[in-house]
Nucleic acid binder design. Sequence first.
DNA 1: CACCATGTTCCTTG
DNA 2: CCAAGGAACATGGT
Length: 301
Amino acid sequence: MPELPEVEVLVRHLRPLLKGKSIRGLTVHREKVIRPATKKELERTLINARFESVERRAKFLVFRLTRSSAGIKHASKSRNAALPAGSRQHVVLIGHLGMTGRMYLQPARAPLPRHAAVSLDLGRTRFVYEDTRYFGRLTTDTSMLDGLGPEPWSDEFTVDAFAKDLKRSSQDIKIKLLDQSLVAGIGNIYASEALFRAGISPRKAACRLTRAQVTRLHSSIRAVLQEAIDCGSTIPLDFAGNGKRDGLFYYGQSGDGSEFYEERLLVYDRAGEPCGRCQTIIRRVVQAARSTYFCPTCQRG
DNA sequence: CACCATGTTCCTTG
DNA sequence: CCAAGGAACATGGT
């Protein structure tokens, strides 16, 4: 379940569950998801580390942990009292869900999912990162955060900066929205949704948007992402189960998400259906090898 | 069998 | 050095 809103909702879900818990052991079921780190490295830095916070950066999950920096001197039974207060070293763990990743807690003795990639032993519970396609990551390497553009709501994401970046590219605007160095967090679903909301054709060259269009797009991005977060915060979600999904959120079996599906995404995956605003049939086109959905009437220019 | 899928990175080519 | 296009990654659903 990727894209910024899903990650944000997941982070809010995991935060209270993980805070204060310590990692007793870990199993790497798929080495590729921890690269360029190694098993040994993860074991060395994560075992006995305790979760302090869980944050989001773009589509990444940022787990901050600390571990007692017990020196060689405090060998055996020396408890915390023997260590200088606050002498804990900080550890950062970065997660990314790729296309099909999920993260959740399950009872320690429950069976692992078929595509478990990494699991952390937290004592009574187990933290599981599973990923059918293994495109995601869970590693101590933080280099993936390099080069990310501003968060959509940060002060650095201004209409001016955005307009300036768009001016430098002749690529279609839809494609530029997926460029994480312009503004971080938009994915294929919300790129279409934001453009529909702004009334801009996904095939318009980025450098040819008018100032008014850039302004509208700027606020549409924020609105679309915020509404998705709000929606995910409202619906009862099924992080670990096999509920229905609407392209990102998993609905529980009993909890009916069907009604949300009706309203949630206005154009994405709706080719052939009438536009909710003008009844024109929604179209699907391919850009940079990815599907784009839009209303040819509501989105011109 | 064919095509599609929420993402990122790497490798060309200009 | 940069922009842009395309393949690659890996598995499953329809």
